[in-house]
């Protein structure tokens, strides 16, 4: 049997909103470690990896490892029915082909349950080794979202360059070009407003903006985003989920022919 209970049910709603447009179907793996998922978009250009550690839940029981194949659009439909303050319980019995979501209002005066049919999904799990990155940028997630949105009104791709000067986001399109430079800024009152750039090597990579804008849908999950770049690796855009884990997006670069 698998059962988890999360008092902050809105967190699961936010997770689904962040990934449902990128991935159609995914296997959610439940183990003693926690609730995790790895899935690629249909073109194999982007990958999302989610981890919610068991310690982060108010209740977590997993008698044996299970993998639940779920259509994300359908799971998002169900989670939309949960109130923002609702307590969410997710349950699956061994050997059944469905998962149950239960929503309880904080005052316990409304209790809903939804049963979602599971599906068989051929999961293509990529092995992603730990890597040393040439540059790691930490910045306010809302700022990153704003930059991606602004640049996509000019062009389709973004060049992210990290130098001693800072991190530069550039694009070009039919109407012209755009460059946005963010400098390291640690002298802010609130740590969530800081921009911190760790650079071992200068790096410059090109990415499709439509994927970056899709990743930015995770902005409500974390005040800061971490962007890890290496010249010979996909970029990692990570949103930490407070006390629980993370949602990481991997995006393969574009190269000049």
């Amino acid at each position: 049997m698998f059962e988890l209970r999360l008092e902050q049910g809105s967190l699961l709603k936010k997770v689904m909103e962040a990934i449902k447009d990128l991935v159609n179907d995914a296997n959610f793996d439940c183990s003693a470690t926690g609730f995790s998922m790895q899935a690629m978009d249909s073109s194999h250009v982007a990958l999302v990896a989610l981890l919610l550690r068991s310690e982060g839940f108010e209740h977590y029981r997993c008698d044996r490892n299970i993998s639940m194949g779920i259509n994300l659009a359908n799971m998002a439909k169900i989670l939309k029915c949960a109130g923002n303050d609702d307590i969410v319980t997710v349950k699956a019995d061994d050997g059944t082909d469905s998962v149950t979501f239960m929503f309880e209002s904080p005052t316990q005066d409304k209790i809903s349950d939804f049963e979602l049919k599971l599906m068989d999904i051929d999961s293509e799990h990529l092995g992603i080794p730990e890597a040393e990155y040439d540059a790691i940028v930490r910045m306010p997630s809302a700022e990153f979202a704003r930059i991606c949105k602004d640049l996509s009104s000019i062009g389709d791709t973004v060049v992210i360059s990290v130098t001693k000067e800072g991190v530069k986001f550039s694009t070009r399109g039919d109407i012209g070009t755009a460059n946005i430079v963010c400098r390291q800024n640690t002298s802010v009152d609130k740590p969530e407003e800081a921009t911190i750039i760790e650079m071992k090597e200068m790096v410059s990579l090109t990415f499709a903006l439509r994927y970056m804008n899709s990743f930015a849908k995770a902005t409500p999950l974390a005040s800061q985003v971490t962007i890890s770049l290496s010249s010979d690796l996909p970029v990692v855009v990570e949103y930490k989920i407070a006390e629980m884990g993370y949602i990481r997006f991997y995006l393969a670069p574009k190269i000049e022919e």
Partner: peptide, 14 residues
Amino acid sequence: HETQLRLEAFYSFN
């Protein structure tokens, strides 16, 4: 012209 790489160019399947 830019070419979009796929993730398999960097990572292998488990």
